[in-house]
Design a protein around this nucleic acid. Structure first.
Lengths: 187, 187
DNA sequence: AGGCTATGTCAACGGCTGTAGACATAAAAA
DNA sequence: TTTTTATGTCTACAGCCGTTGACATAGCCT
């Protein structure tokens, strides 16, 4: 085999992309470095070389998806319906990345090697930024409750495949979810 | 070493108990048969012999915790506060087993080998029984939404270690959760 | 052209995993 | 007492895994 000797940064990015896709669909320990290497068409060793360790690769995947809750300045009023539609409309949607990161976090939530990374990522990149959008006391707690609903819904739909949340009229569901979120975020 | 040659059923039960405890705190692939064997003070091979396969052991753990939502005949009115207190009061509580099973299910929700078992267990032993307690249309969907909230809360507390849901006054949280569940279960 | 560096391959290690079959011994049955 | 059965142990096998170090070659620089 002839080495490719192309741009290293490019193949590194490809690895990251593959890793992101894999971690989206399997938990930390169920994603093999060899899987990622095969995706990219490269030897395992290279993955290890570019990222040092699997744990660090996972870390970079998470870092590379930093969300931008703050850029799109949403006022607290619109937040419930915004969050509801983000979680329910998995297809299309430009906020896809935000949902993806939530999914990656949830997938590996109980993976010993990844759990710490996952916890801090969730706190620093999800809870705290959103809480900053809110006025009033107990902001973090209210956001935490709201995201309990969101992650619960996501877990039910994605991991448990609960039919009633997948099949039928999404619009009614989205309305209900919005209502619940408004209640959760209220003081 | 001298074989114990005691009652086989007893050691089998001990294995099951150990497995239950393990699966409660680690996901399917992070629980080793050797861990369980060590707990019981027995060789790995015996675990394999008594349960055939790890997958089947997991299955039996789940089966052995069949809940009894129906025995304690709860009317739909009291359901929200009942569920809220079940999820929040992890200590004490005689319904501890029910919560435990929910936790085991969630832990291994995205473990390829266990996901199917987990899905059907959740549907058949949680969603459907509770839905049977409800009147009105869309019972399963309403229960699914309610359990989205419950599992979300549990994931946040147990897996993600979200402080605001753990530390502060549980009573306020329980009230809010009850309110959310009532809203979720309403038509 | 000749050397150097970036890019990538290959082989292998140690560790862990679930599973299977052959063997040992305590308890019960004859 | 002798034989059989239940209850466990021991050894070992493939198969993955992440990680490491030694090697190869393509492309750039002088």
């Amino acid at each position: 085999m002839s080495p490719r000797a192309k741009c290293a940064a490019s193949t590194r990015d490809t690895m990251l992309a593959s890793a992101r896709r894999r971690f989206l669909e399997e938990s930390y320990e169920n994603v093999g470095l060899r899987d990622i290497a095969r995706d990219v068409g490269v030897d395992v060793a290279l993955v290890g070389r570019y990222f040092g360790s699997k744990e660090n690769l996972f870390h970079e995947v998470l870092r590379g998806m930093r969300c931008d809750w703050l850029d799109t300045d949403i006022d607290a009023e619109a937040l419930p319906s915004f969050l509801a539609s983000m979680v329910l409309r998995q297809e299309e949607s430009e906020d896809r990345e935000d949902l993806d990161r939530l999914l990656i976090i949830l997938r590996s939530a109980s993976s010993p090697k990844a759990s710490e990374l996952v916890r801090t990522a969730f706190r620093e990149d999800v809870i705290e930024p959103v809480a900053r959008l809110l006025k009033g006391a107990d902001a973090e707690r209210r956001v935490a409750v709201a995201f309990s609903i969101l992650t619960g819904t996501t877990v039910m739909r994605t991991f448990m495949g609960v039919e009633p949340l997948l099949a039928c009229c999404q619009q009614g569901l989205e309305q209900k979810l919005t209502r619940l979120l408004r209640e959760a975020l209220s003081t």
